[in-house]
Simulated scan of single mutants.
Amino acid sequence: MHSDPIVPKGAAYFPLETDAPTRQYAFVLVPGFTLLAFSSAVDPLRIANQLSQKPLYRWQVLSETGEPVASSSGISICVNQRIAPLPRATRLFVCSGNPPQAATAPAIVSMVQRHARFGGMVGGICTGAIALAKAGLLNDRAFTLHWENQPAFCETFPELRPTTALFEGAGAVMTCGGGAAATDMMLSIIEQDHGAEFAGIVSDMCLRKVMVGPRPEQRSSTAILLQSRNPGLLAVVGLMNSHIEDPLSLPELAERAGYSRRHIERMFLSVLGETPGNYYRGLRLDRARNLLSTTDMSLLDVATACGFGSVAHFSKSFKSRFGFPPTKFDRVVSGFRGV
């Protein structure tokens, strides 16, 4: 069941000459989906209709049961119907959030597989890429999902590596990191459909002065996060972040970064107020906390993934940083391993 196209009235108007048929969209809401990401994907379509005063886009909202779906903010959204086979021309997006494993519900994965098999376009918003991965649609393809969930995703799907881009893909498969990146992804689609000038006006209506495109990364740069432009410090921290599972010793860091050990120690103490070893250990423990909150990995697996040689050493370090041992960590958000 497709609802009628929504073409609201508005003061702004862009006379768009087109006889293209109305493009169909379907958004599958998964329990715990991110409300910001969902609305950021839908509203550019609404704005496009409003600006042109034409039914350029029509959308429907689906859920596995046909019942309203609660977002991660506790706000529930009513849907048009339960999931069902869609016409091939429909662009299907899975909208997910936390818990990420909700996107791997068998009925949702089957729907995605079927739609792709019959030539339909499929996409993932926020952690919706997990449904696409489970459906086997991300092999040998650039894709992304929210940075918060990427460590757990890589542990669960070790053969797949998401990018840090805001969104990825064109044509048959598209993914975005969620949040406001959903708007950037939809603007890119509107540009493909109706041109850069029209998409630019839609972007202005979203109060996004510049259409950023897919390549900017989801997270602020290390330089901004550390509030430092010291090239030596940034080089060493970059090495640390890329060697979480297999930590490098300080001499190895010094050799690869091209600085003396003593110089690195002085940089960390003067800029960050702690030793390189303490900072590195903090990065690894923060990754461990992420994995504990987003997966059902064992303590041994988490310790190994974060470069600790034993559970005992990991537990002691974890308690020192967070004030309680990992065995007491409230794992409210269970993982999606083995689903």
Rank of each mutant, 00 (worst) to 15 (best):
S3M: 09
D4P: 02
I6N: 02
V7C: 05
K9T: 15
G10A: 11
P15Y: 08
D19S: 13
A20S: 12
R23C: 07
A26W: 00
F27S: 01
L29D: 01
V30F: 05
P31Q: 04
P31I: 01
L36E: 11
P44A: 11
N49Q: 10
Q50G: 11
Q53F: 08
S63W: 00
T65Q: 02
T65F: 01
V69D: 00
V69C: 04
S71P: 01
S76C: 05
V79K: 01
A84M: 12
L86V: 01
R88H: 04
T90N: 02
F93R: 01
V94M: 07
C95Q: 00
C95L: 13
S96W: 05
G97C: 08
P99E: 08
P100E: 10
A103G: 09
I108T: 05
M111H: 02
M111L: 15
R117M: 10
G123I: 04
I125G: 02
I125F: 06
I125T: 06
A129C: 11
I130S: 03
I130Q: 03
G136H: 04
L137W: 02
L138N: 01
N139I: 10
F143G: 02
T144G: 12
H146R: 03
H146C: 12
E148P: 00
Q150V: 14
A152P: 04
T156P: 03
F157M: 08
E159S: 14
R161P: 00
P162S: 11
E168G: 07
A172N: 08
A172R: 12
T175C: 12
C176I: 08
G177C: 14
A180T: 15
I189G: 01
I190Y: 03
A196R: 12
A199V: 06
A199I: 06
V202F: 05
S203C: 12
M205E: 13
M205W: 04
Q218K: 05
R219K: 13
S221R: 09
I224D: 11
L225N: 09
Q227R: 13
V236F: 11
G238L: 12
G238P: 10
E245F: 00
L248S: 05
S249G: 14
P251W: 04
A254V: 00
Y259V: 00
R261K: 11
H263Q: 09
I264K: 02
M267N: 04
S270V: 12
S270Q: 14
S270M: 09
P276E: 13
P276Q: 10
Y279D: 15
Y279H: 15
L283H: 09
L283Q: 14
L285K: 06
D286T: 11
R287Q: 13
L299M: 10
D301T: 12
T304H: 12
F308P: 03
K316W: 01
F318H: 06
F318D: 10
S320D: 15
F322Q: 02
P326Y: 02
K328L: 15
R331S: 14
V333K: 05
G335A: 14
R337P: 04
R337H: 14
G338I: 09
V339H: 10
